[in-house]
């Protein structure tokens, strides 16, 4: 239980095409993340899966059953929203239980499931409070609890962490990862943050402008990006792109090297340049270098390194770690 297929799903608002033909297979128990820049149609796609928005064309099947004409409540899904979307006039307990109550579940069953979910999320103390009396992190946990109580085939998360502060975001991320392990449920999670995507996903779907750019495991996307967009989007700091002609590579238009795959030396190497800025992050040192040969590029060094602005340095790409792209931006393998 809990598989999902999308077949050439399209969505237009008026004459603006937002989703331009999405095909996707999600297996039971998978944690799939849609990642992409703001406005690329991630939320719209999620809302189409939930049934909150009608697809203009295409088919959606959950567990092998076509659901295009099925209302959201009957699709066996639960959704967690960025803005929490808790019912302001209901207590935490009633917020979590409303879906089951509407579905006509017996009272004891609701009690039992709410108790279980609130224990999982350490919400027992707050069951009789209203959303206004909770902190942001607690509200988001209630929203997650409300989804768990429904025991859905498919969990849908729409940027659930983006309203939380940094520390809470890490905690809640861990909590969601733990939930996925415990519940073994299928989860679809939308974010614009590639770190969230890399840390949580079994499978990442990179979207841009309503089109899937690449589907793969986090390491596949990192090691074998299919095109320039994915190469630049996954990884931080972003990959360095250099015109192939400037470094004498004939069979490609652009080459890409990740900042962590460049070695730096004061004595000699392939690309000579001058340091323009240095960022010390403790575990990492990020060095920005302006080079006559290849332009501005970034180097990520592990640990502390003492380079100063205007130092002359040499960078050398690690063997086998350069990516080549053709004139259309596709990776050459």
């Amino acid at each position: 239980m809990g598989s999902l297929q999308l077949k050439s799903v399209r969505k237009s608002f008026g004459n603006v095409d937002v989703i331009k033909g999405i095909d996707l297979d999600v297996k039971d128990g998978e944690f799939v993340i849609f990642v992409g820049p703001s406005g690329c149609g991630k939320s719209t796609l999620l809302r189409i899966i939930a049934g909150l928005e009608d697809a203009t064309s295409g088919s959606i099947t959950i567990d092998g059953a076509e659901v295009v004409t099925v209302p959201p409540a009957k699709r066996g899904i639960a959704m967690v929203f960025q803005s929490y979307a808790l019912y302001p006039h209901l207590t935490v307990k009633d917020n979590m239980g409303l879906g089951l109550k509407q579905a006509g579940a017996p009272k004891e069953e609701i009690e039992k499931r709410v108790a279980k979910a609130s224990a999982m999320l350490s919400l027992e103390k707050y069951l009789s409070r209203r959303p206004a009396e909770l902190s942001g992190g607690q509200r988001q946990r209630v929203a997650i609890g409300r989804a768990i109580v429904r025991e859905p085939k498919l969990f849908l998360f729409d940027e659930p962490l983006s309203n939380l502060d940094a520390a809470l975001r890490v905690n809640t991320r861990l909590e969601i990862a733990r939930l996925h392990r415990d519940l073994k449920a299928t989860m679809i999670y939308v974010t614009h943050d590639q770190v969230e995507a890399m840390t949580l996903a079994d499978k990442i779907v990179v979207l841009d402008a309503g089109v899937i750019q690449q589907v793969g495991s986090p390491m596949e996307l990192y090691n074998k990006p299919a095109n320039l967009f994915v190469a630049g989007f996954i990884g931080s700091p972003a990959m360095n792109f250099i015109e192939a002609s400037r470094v004498g590579v004939a069979d490609a238009k652009t080459i890409g090297v990740r900042p962590e795959h460049l070695a730096l030396s004061r004595d000699g190497g392939e690309w000579q340049g001058k340091v323009v800025h240095v960022e010390h992050l403790g575990a990492d040192t990020i060095v920005y270098i302006e080079s006559e040969k290849v332009g501005l590029f970034t180097v990520r060094l592990f640990g502390e390194h003492h380079y100063a602005v205007d130092d002359v340095v040499y960078a050398t790409p690690a063997a086998g770690q350069t990516h080549r792209f053709d004139a259309d931006g596709r990776a050459i393998r």
Partner: peptide, 26 residues
Amino acid sequence: SDDLKNAGRIDGLSEYSIFFRLVLPL
């Protein structure tokens, strides 16, 4: 908030319940 109304739809509230129970009080 649209999210609130959508949460109601997912929880199986009818459009009338969404109107009377979620929107009107707000």
